[in-house]
């Protein structure tokens, strides 16, 4: 009796383990492992162009005292936070339209249409924007046709924002829409019954209630804009050196991986703090 019970228990444990363990183990081996190595790597030394495991603070001192590092850090942060604000503003009317002004069927189709571009090659779409914005490109010719002499729009902050909106808009619209769709509709009716006009309903009822969705949407836009290196490289033309470009250049041009690791860890720390602060703000009680 007891032995058959323990066998059943064992087989139940085995059944649980078969399903619970594979992904966590894989991620421990090939995601957590690399991340921990990244931390260690930031203390290594480079001797005669060879990486040497070590424990010294030289890389951190070097990077954190370099003006070009802080310039890149500030630039990346400003670009990402501007993109997050801009994308959230553009997404808001879209999400309102999807959640409140469309039929159930149309809503599904439109959300689907917004999701598709997110999973298509961002590289090729950036190349397309290059074609639009370059010297003698489509936008310049169209503007010239109505009498505006614009010059190349490439390598401007505007080009960067166009790229980052392209990258993050679908994600932000989906997050905002999900939170609007789960909103209790009786809340809105109650506000109308109490005599609020549409504007008051929007600003006093809807927006406060969907604050988590708006904040999380902005957070995702920030995360993706902060980490992206394609936009700044191909729409910024190397004029806007971001943290990601710093890493890519350092790794691809030589053996200074430990210094790139410092930059990478500073990025992760920034994203972590931003994420925790946003989540705290999103779910804060008013």
């Amino acid at each position: 009796m007891t032995s058959s019970l323990s066998i059943r228990r064992l087989s139940r444990l085995a059944y649980g383990g078969i399903w619970s363990l594979p992904l966590p183990l894989w991620l421990a081996g090939f995601f957590l492992g690399p991340m921990i190595l990244l931390i260690w790597l930031s203390f290594w030394d480079v001797k005669n162009f060879l990486l040497t495991p070590d424990f010294q603070l030289e890389n951190w001192k070097k990077m954190l005292s370099a003006p070009y590092f802080w310039a890149a850090y500030l630039r990346t942060f400003i670009i990402a936070i501007s993109a997050a604000a801009l994308v959230s503003l553009i997404a808001l009317p879209c999400s309102l339209a999807i959640s409140f002004f469309l039929s159930v069927r149309a809503r599904m189709v439109v959300l689907g249409l917004f999701v598709v571009p997110f999973f298509t090659s961002y590289l090729v779409r950036v190349y397309s924007w290059q074609i639009y914005l370059t010297e003698n490109g489509i936008v310049m010719k169209l503007l010239a046709a109505i009498g505006i002499d614009s010059g190349s729009l490439l390598n401007t902050p505007l080009a960067l924002m166009i790229g980052l909106v392209t990258l993050t808009l679908p994600l932000v619209i989906v997050i905002q829409s999900i939170s609007m769709l789960s909103l209790d509709k009786t809340l809105i009716d109650a506000a109308y019954n109490l005599g609020c006009g549409p504007c008051r309903v929007l600003f006093a009822t809807v927006l406060p209630a969907v604050r988590p969705g708006i904040v999380l949407g902005a957070l995702f836009a920030f995360i993706f804009s902060f980490g992206d290196f394609v936009t700044a490289t191909y729409l910024g033309g190397g004029k806007f050196t971001t943290m990601s470009i710093l890493i890519a250049d350092t790794v691809k041009s030589g053996q200074q991986w430990p210094r790139a690791a410092v930059v990478a860890l500073m990025m992760i720390a920034t994203l972590l703090i931003t994420a925790l602060a946003s989540i705290a703000f999103a779910y804060r009680r008013t």
Partner: peptide, 8 residues
């Protein structure tokens, strides 16, 4: 960020 995962 993809570059960070890439480096790690």
């Amino acid at each position: 960020p993809l570059v960070v995962i890439g480096l790690a």
